[in-house]
Amino acid sequence: MRSTHIDNSLGEGVYFPLQSYPGFIRRSLAMLIDGTIVMFLGTGIWALLSLLFYAMEFTRSPEVFFFVIWLATTWAYMTLLKRSWLRTIGYRLAGLQIVDANGSRPSLTRMTLRLLMWVFGPFNFFFDMVWLGADSERQTLRDCYCGTYVVRTAAQPEGIAPLHLTRYFAAGLAPSYPRVVRPASVAERPAPMPPIAE
């Protein structure tokens, strides 16, 4: 008698229908809109601080205050707002939301790590976009390592499956991260072995 063992040591997570994962154009549109908004926020903060320093007749330049306020505003926009039900403007216009492996809102720690990986690496926009086109769940490398999934706004989980450590070998890299492994469809399952004649 043969028993089948399913490894649940990493826990379980939800998976979505494949059409729920946005493609390259929709993801790029959301990034472009949010990036433009962050730049406009920086311009507005700089203009307000410059006027304030001029009106108060300060002799110092507002660079330090500008960077502190702009970084705090960017962090709040790209983490607090993006993970909330409001979402960022780019995500709302592109019809996207971000969830974790349980289909819930990602933690603030995950979102902060995701933002830091965007700013400091080790991945850049080019790697993210290339990986997005090749990934089975259409996720960037940042999403894979942070355990986040970008899906369409109305997406509903299709089921629950175990988390397995996924390994890839490409372009001299060997990324490895936990991934919800969706069960194979009936059409994808191998045919049963014929009985051995005695």
Rank of each mutant, 00 (worst) to 15 (best):
Q156Y: 01
F40H: 11
R167T: 12
A94T: 03
M193S: 12
V38R: 02
A101G: 14
W75M: 03
Q19A: 12
L108V: 04
G90C: 03
A154C: 08
P195C: 01
L165M: 14
R138Q: 10
R87I: 08
E63C: 07
Q19T: 10
N8K: 09
G95Y: 01
P62L: 06
L80P: 00
S50N: 03
I37T: 03
P192D: 08
R114F: 07
R27C: 04
A170D: 13
W118A: 15
S107L: 04
V150W: 00
L86G: 00
Y77E: 05
F67Q: 14
I6S: 07
G95F: 07
V38N: 08
S28W: 01
R26D: 05
V130H: 01
R114K: 04
Y91S: 11
R182V: 04
L141W: 15
W46V: 06
D143A: 06
Q19K: 08
S185K: 05
A170I: 15
L132F: 13
N8S: 09
S28R: 02
R179E: 09
G95D: 02
C144T: 12
I6Q: 09
N102P: 09
G11R: 02
V64C: 05
I33G: 06
G44D: 04
L163P: 00
F120N: 03
L71S: 08
L113Y: 04
I196T: 13
Y15W: 02
M56E: 14
H164Y: 10
E137C: 08
Y54T: 10
G11E: 00
L108W: 02
L163I: 05
E12K: 05
E188V: 02
R105C: 06
Y145I: 15
A47T: 01
V181E: 05
L48H: 06
Q139T: 12
A55L: 14
V99K: 07
L41D: 11
F66L: 14
V181W: 03
P17N: 03
A154H: 13
A187D: 09
F126T: 14
K82L: 13
G23F: 11
A191W: 13
T153W: 10
L163E: 05
T109W: 15
R152A: 08
M117I: 01
Q97C: 09
R142C: 10
Y177H: 07
L116G: 13
G13E: 04
D135E: 13
T148H: 07
S50G: 09
V151C: 01
S3F: 12
F125V: 15
S176R: 06
M111G: 01
R189H: 06
S104D: 15
S61L: 10
V130R: 03
N124P: 00
Q97N: 06
L141Y: 10
M129E: 04
T112I: 05
E137P: 00
N124E: 15
V68Q: 12
T140G: 15
L141S: 02
